[in-house]
């Protein structure tokens, strides 16, 4: 019985040390977008004073 228990323990230890590869997460590489040079148009208004139709 003692010999059987030792065999079971040995089997368990060997199994746990087996070279079966662990399922490692696949690295996903998401590059941070590097801003590129930009053409930006800024349209701007001011002091409209609630005028619906242009005047002046």
């Amino acid at each position: 019985m003692k010999r059987f228990s030792l065999a079971v323990i040995l089997a368990l230890v060997l199994t746990s040390c087996s070279p079966t590869p662990l399922p490692l997460p696949t690295p996903t590489f998401t590059p941070t977008p590097t801003p590129q040079p930009l053409e930006l148009v800024v349209l701007h208004t001011n002091d409209t004073w609630g005028y619906i139709f242009p005047c002046g």
């Binding site: 701007h44 409209t48 005047c55």
Partner: peptide, 11 residues
């Protein structure tokens, strides 16, 4: 003057 002009900046 109001509402007469729009500014345009191309940067």
């Amino acid at each position: 003057h109001a509402g007469r002009e729009v500014g345009f900046a191309r940067l």
